[in-house]
Every structure is written in C-alpha cells, then in structure tokens.
Simulated assay, not measured.
Amino acid sequence: MNLARTKDGPDAPPRQGAALAALAAAQFTVMLATSIVNVALPQIRSGVGLSDGGTTWVVNAYGLAFGALLLAGGRAGDLFGRRRVLLAGLAVFAGASLAAGLAGSPGLLIAARALQGVGAAAIAPAALALTMNLFPPGPGRGRALGVWGAVSGAGGAGGVLLGGVLTQAWGWPWVFHAVALGTMLVLIAVATLVPRAADRGSGRFDLLGTATVTLALTCLVWGLTTARGAGWTDAGVLSALLGAAVLLVLFARVERRRPDALIPPRLFTTGRVAAGNLLMALLGSVWIALFFFLPLYQQQVL
C-alpha cells in the first residue's frame, strides 16, 4: 500500500473517487432506463399505436435482452477488456435510446428497447468489475459497493419521477432523449476518468451457452406474455413454455461440459449463492411488476 501511495502520489484518492463516480453513473443510467418508461406508457401507447401486448413489450424487450445477455456481457468484459466493453455498451445504449425517442412505429420502438438492453448487458457487469478492481478488499471496497447499491436504488426511483416530469413537460420522446444525452455524458466521464488497465482474460466465448439461455428466456417471456390474451391452453403458449424448459435443461447440460462456461456449475454448490439468486429472482418479479402496473393503474383506472 505504501508503494502504491508513493507511486500515485497524494492525488490517488481523488482520482479513485472520480472514477467511482463515473462508474456509478453508468449503473445509474442502466437502472434509470428500467423504470423511466413506466409512467409514460399510456402516452407511448397512443403515440406509436401500441396494442395491450405491445405495451408490455416496451418493458419486456429491454428486460429480456438485458437479463439474457448479462452473463455474456460479463464474459465479453473478461475477454476483451472491461473498460473497452463498458465504452462500447454506453455507445450502443445511447444510440438505441435516441432511436427509441425517434421511433414512429411499434416495431421500431420495441427493437430500440431491445438494443438498449443489449447495451445495458455490457455496461452493468463491466462497470461493477472495474469498481472491484479500483478498490482492493477491505473497508474501501465495502464503501464503494455501498455507493453502488445506493445509486442502483436511486436510478430505479428516479426513473419514475423523471419519466413523469419529462412526459408532462415535453412529451414521451424526451424520456428516451434524456437518457441518450445522459449516457453520452457518462461515456465521456468514463473515457476521461476511469484508468486504462490490462484486464483481459483468457479462454473462449461460450456461444452455445449464450444462444441456449437467450432463446430459453425469450420463449419463456413470450409464452407468459402471450398467455394473457391467448389463454394458457393455447398451442403456441404451451409450445413456447415447453421450448423454454427444454432449452434451459440443454443450457444446464452444456454448462457442465464446457471449460469456459457462462455459469460455472461450482457456483451453485454453495448454499449462499443459490439462496441469494432465489431471493433476487423473487424480488425482481415483485418490484419490476409493481413499476409496470402501478403507474398504469393510477393513470387509467384511478
């Protein structure tokens, strides 16, 4: 530690804090995009001519791409450099946000939201890994992760408030334009403040694992979403849910046999990891649904 302080000089802590601020801002942007559309959904629906099912996909397209590719984004950061992947993810995220604000049809809007999710899947794991690299194990890392958690919660809550303000003041496209502008500012901050590091790893990218888990989640979400209108006994719904189950089993078998697996099976041999994942899955299913339904209920029913 003394050698590091001598090398970096007295300015090392401020530089470290500035880099943490830039990385936390990247996480804030990801969480903001998760919730900022919810209050604007009625206006978005009428603005681009969305159906009931299409309205849900404005949220689902982002969450599905984000969740399905999150593991792949983390692995890409390991292989190609986390700072490089973070900057690329921010660029994709900003471009997709701008495209969503300019979209004039349901298909273009949903595709832009999915592309936003792709960018978010690169941003979140790379930014967190860079934060862990900045702070060695100890109290400093604990405080940094505390900041990270607080910023994540603030992004989710701030998105609801900001989405309502922007929609009322300038219309629903500014929900996306504001995210695009903010993301560009974050990209500049990361490029300026986050130091370069030799953080490339070794190994290969798990294309088969990525493909199977992405298709499995897509089938699952499509089946659950379509069941609302078509019914649970519809052949298409049952086929999608069955396909999701088969693909998830295939994914588990693939991961057991690959040396560079997206999810190393050893992670689930620890009870704490399995319990933590289960609790986060239950929490996500509650709060994401709450953010979607509550603004619609308040605006269209109350």
Rank of each mutant, 00 (worst) to 15 (best):
T167I: 04
G140C: 03
S97R: 02
P137W: 04
G101Q: 03
P139Y: 03
A72N: 05
L98W: 11
F135S: 07
A99Q: 09
G146M: 08
L161G: 02
A122C: 15
W148P: 05
L115V: 14
L161S: 06
A72P: 05
L87M: 11
I110G: 12
L145D: 13
W148H: 08
G95E: 01
G140R: 15
N133S: 15
A154P: 01
A126Y: 06
S152T: 15
L98Y: 10
L87K: 05
L128W: 09
G149L: 06
G140Q: 13
S152C: 14
A76I: 12
P125K: 06
A154I: 11
G159R: 10
G89Y: 01
P106E: 13
V160P: 06
V160T: 14
P106D: 12
G153C: 12
R75F: 00
A144C: 09
V118A: 14
L86T: 00
G153D: 11
I110K: 13
G140F: 00
R83M: 00
L162E: 02
A72C: 05
S97V: 07
G146S: 06
G95V: 00
G107P: 08
G163S: 00
G101S: 06
L145P: 12
I123M: 10
M132V: 15
A91T: 09
G159M: 11
L87Y: 06
A157C: 11
A76Y: 10
A144K: 06
P136N: 09
R143P: 13
A94V: 04
I123H: 02
G142F: 11
S152M: 15
A99G: 10
L161P: 04
A103W: 07
L90F: 00
P125G: 08
R82V: 03
A127Q: 07
V118Q: 09
V165Y: 03
L86I: 02
G74E: 02
L115A: 14
A129I: 03
V147W: 10
G163P: 01
A111G: 10
V85H: 00
V85I: 15
G155W: 01
S105C: 09
R83H: 00
L115M: 14
L108P: 03
G159D: 10
G155Q: 03
A154L: 15
V151H: 04
P125S: 05
L98V: 11
R84D: 05
I110T: 12
F135N: 07
A100P: 07
A112Q: 04
P125R: 08
V85F: 07
G140I: 02
G77Y: 02
R82G: 00
G107I: 11
G138W: 08
G101D: 04
T167D: 08
V160F: 12
G155D: 03
L166M: 02
F135M: 10
A88Q: 04
V92G: 06
R82T: 05
G73N: 02
G159Y: 11
Q116E: 11
L98K: 04
A122E: 01
L145R: 13
G104Y: 09
G142H: 12
P106K: 13
L166F: 04
I123G: 00
P137K: 04
G95M: 01
G164E: 01
R75T: 10
F135D: 06
A100K: 09
A127D: 06
G164K: 01
A72S: 15
L161F: 14
L102E: 08
A103N: 08
L86H: 01
V92P: 00
G81M: 00
